[in-house]
Design a protein around this nucleic acid. Structure first.
Lengths: 204, 204
DNA sequence: TCTTGTTTTAAACAAACGTTTAAAATCCTT
DNA sequence: AAGGATTTTAAACGTTTGTTTAAAACAAGA
């Protein structure tokens, strides 16, 4: 009789949870095994090493992180609508995965640093046609003519940072977690308005 | 004859450098001692424990981090000018201390988490009179009426995130470090314009 | 020079780390 | 039911961790 969840999957899921919460340096093989309710040796039996297991988790997390952003681009809305939907979508996604931005950024800053398959992600974005759409909108004056690398940076800054800095800002403002989340919901609207007004100046 | 730099200071400075680069979990006592060119035992001789030493470094870093932001508020410029100077100031500060935002945020997200003396920092900000200045500007309609916690969040998002995400975005865009820094310099102007236009709508 | 207190050293400590081993338990096919 | 492969276990491996020890080196006053 097959078990409902395989040991391999249990370890993978426990590893994901532990790695995302504490980072590679911040946890041990035994901690992952305990979280999975399994023996330490099974971690290496199924995944050869802590590093190997981490690599799998990191790459899956990077997929989640990047691809969650891409899927909006393909729709048949105007750029301005896409922008608003994108931000809405990103805030909703981060509500479910609040540890993701910190995890990705930290692990990429590590010395034995993680790398990403940037071709893979670049292609995913390119094939939505969003680049051409932006160039056209910039030529026609519908969109502010700024570097195409600044646009995602503006969006990510205003979507990711508020989630990443939650613990610090809660303490700084003396807020509870739910208070912060409520403010975040209001902040989302500000971000949306600000970015749309800035990138599509005629839309006022 | 007194040495030019005391052993205690050498260890403190090495610790700052190593902790900021790798975080508490990412380094060892021996690594710090080696960076200082001293014996491992001296770390505990002067600072009792790795944790104790870390606490000192973290609190100094938090001071740098927060107080670098506060000192602009006290000047006698208009709010709009202060905003621009503040952003300029913050980008310049982060050019010298690019690891600081990641360090602070990560360590505050740790389980055995660091805390901050939020009263201390709140008072530092409050005594510049910036709160009253903002309230007045909002009442008079010179400044957009949004939550006073959203304003620093907007600024920090757009100043800190671009520095924190450098390694990731470099890889994603296939850029070199200097290319990224050049873009960042252009981005700074965008951020400045965007935030000023958003917060002081009449200034167009 | 001897004494006292401070600083530095090499060595050791127990605990925890990632990983491996070898035997036990379980599974699946015949 | 027997067999061989797979999965799981407890124990151990050698390192590295943070920390402590005890002796050595040094400084400075009497």
């Amino acid at each position: 009789m097959k078990k409902d969840t395989s040991t391999e999957d249990k370890i993978r899921e426990a590893a994901r949870q532990v790695f995302l919460a504490k980072g590679f340096d911040g946890c041990t093989s035994r901690e992952i095994a305990n979280a999975a309710g399994e023996n330490v040796a099974l971690v290496n039996y199924y995944f050869r090493s802590k590093s190997q297991l981490f690599k799998i988790i990191f790459e899956a997390a990077m997929d989640d992180f990047i691809l969650s952003m891409v899927q909006v681009f393909g729709s048949d809305k105007t750029l301005e609508e896409k922008m608003r939907i994108f931000i809405e979508h990103e805030y909703a996604f981060l509500e479910k995965h609040p540890e993701l931005p910190s995890f990705i950024l930290n692990e990429m800053n590590r010395e034995e640093g993680c790398t990403m398959d940037h071709q893979k992600y670049f292609l995913k974005v390119a094939e939505t046609g969003i680049f051409e759409e932006c160039f056209k909108a910039q030529e026609e004056g519908r969109m502010r003519s700024i570097s195409l690398s600044s646009i995602p940076l503006l969006i990510m800054s205003n979507c990711h940072y508020p989630v990443m800095a939650k613990n610090m800002l809660m303490q700084l403002h003396g807020m509870t977690s739910t208070e912060y989340d409520e403010n975040l919901n209001l902040h989302k609207k500000l971000v949306s308005d600000m970015l749309v007004n800035f990138l599509f100046p005629q839309s006022n």
